[in-house]
Simulated scan of single mutants.
Amino acid sequence: MTQAITRHDRVLGCLVGGAVGDALGYQVEFTPWDRIEASWGPAGVTELRNNQISDDTQMTLFTVEGLLLGTDGGSEEDRVEQIRLAYLRWLTTQREPMPPLGSEGLAAQPWLYSRRAPGNACVSGLRDGGRPGVNPNSKGCGTVMRSAPFGLHFGPDEAYAFAERCSQMTHGHPTAGASAGAFAMIVAHLMNGETPQRAVSAALLHLRGGIDRSETADALQQAFKLAGNIPPGPNTCAPLGEGWVAEEALAIAVYCFLGTDDVRKGLTAAVSHSGDSDSTGAILGNLYGAAYGHAALPKEWASQVEGREVIHALANLMEPVA
């Protein structure tokens, strides 16, 4: 008899899985596929030679902290404000060499004060206060890679709404918000025990519900099609783009997610390409963890990834909103 996956195991799997995919891809971020192949071999990135996470996991953890601080009977506005303040604390970690005197929570963690190629829009948007209206033309993937915790914390519709709204703190383009929202919605459906296909299909239906054309829905449709025709492998995601923009990063991760339930094979495929390898790896790791739980992650990767103790502690605090 197969043991049921507990909610806690999905939460922990999602957060650790994201960190694993992030670290795996951070090893080759900005590296063209031909150079990856020359350095790592035709099988792609199959080892965690360096356990360091990037800004993707850093911001994801600050999203968790903001959600945890905004749950005590606060209004929607209060919750959104806690997320903004959490992101501003993350910005401090990118400016200071060590925690300022009196820092608390994640801001007191020295290992988070490493600058790991933070996205320009994330930095500039928060530098300007993290208010709606910043970077109106930006749809970089920095808004997607940090949004899994909304799906862990809320049901599907609320997860979409919060992720979409909080994306506006750094990325003003509607596609950035739609992609972040769709990602959070998929995670929420997985947390409810839906299959990968049903979870992605539900997000697609939500995106197609409006009268406006959706770049995110178009990209997810392409991911569906590619997953049905080409099994994920090194650089097979190339038809979907390089992952620098929101809908491409989400589509690459979803393609690998739908294409194989072999976590190791999928993560290798998600990071072994030209482009934003850490973000596509992080997003896929979040999806795999939410779907299959922490136990499904490759043990040698999950046991050594940077920040795992803090991630475990945060996962223990995550509770769903009634």
Rank of each mutant, 00 (worst) to 15 (best):
G105S: 05
K225D: 15
R115W: 12
G151R: 08
V144S: 06
S214H: 11
A315L: 12
L126D: 08
V11F: 02
K265H: 15
A176K: 02
G241M: 01
G155D: 15
R95G: 04
W33V: 05
H273S: 02
S277F: 01
E300G: 04
G119W: 11
G243R: 01
Q222W: 11
W40K: 09
T236S: 02
L88A: 02
S179W: 09
A184I: 08
Q58G: 09
G18F: 03
D34Q: 13
A159N: 09
F257Q: 00
R89V: 03
I230L: 15
L69I: 05
L287R: 00
E306C: 11
A4M: 12
L314I: 10
E104K: 14
F62P: 02
P174T: 08
A86T: 03
F257W: 02
A43R: 15
G25T: 00
N137Y: 11
S279R: 00
A291V: 06
Q168C: 14
I53C: 03
G209I: 13
F183D: 05
G289E: 07
L15F: 04
N50Y: 05
L205V: 15
A43H: 13
F224S: 10
T143S: 15
T92G: 06
P99W: 02
D261R: 14
R35P: 06
G210N: 11
L12W: 03
P136H: 06
E309Y: 12
W301P: 10
A249P: 06
A108C: 10
L12R: 10
R10G: 00
A148Y: 06
R10T: 00
I252E: 04
A176D: 03
T216R: 12
E158D: 14
